[in-house]
Amino acid sequence: MKLTCDEATTICDKSQYNEASFLEKIKLQLHILLCKKCGNYSKQNGIMSKCYEKKRAYDSDKKKCLCKEDKKAMENNLKENYNTTK
């Protein structure tokens, strides 16, 4: 029943994605009652999730694609190989 800090923080990480089970969450809460470090971790983990969410929004604004030169180079490479395999 008793968790180590390593196990408790693993559950805490899981719960950031809503993937911790009910029992796990209870165990985590019990652990946090007695462990200040993990209590701190748990609080900060929520803040970290907010940071990741910010970053996610920031990243999705940037559009990523191949530029013309990249495609041209691929095209040439493909052609060369196409001719040799034929």
Binding site: T9, T10, D13, K14, Q16, Y41, Q44, N45, M48, C51
Partner: peptide, 17 residues
């Protein structure tokens, strides 16, 4: 997967701290 996520997150927490 959870071991990896857990290690990544504890490391990132420390780095951001």
């Amino acid at each position: 997967l959870w071991v990896i996520i857990h290690r990544a997150r504890t490391q990132l927490r420390k780095c951001m701290e």
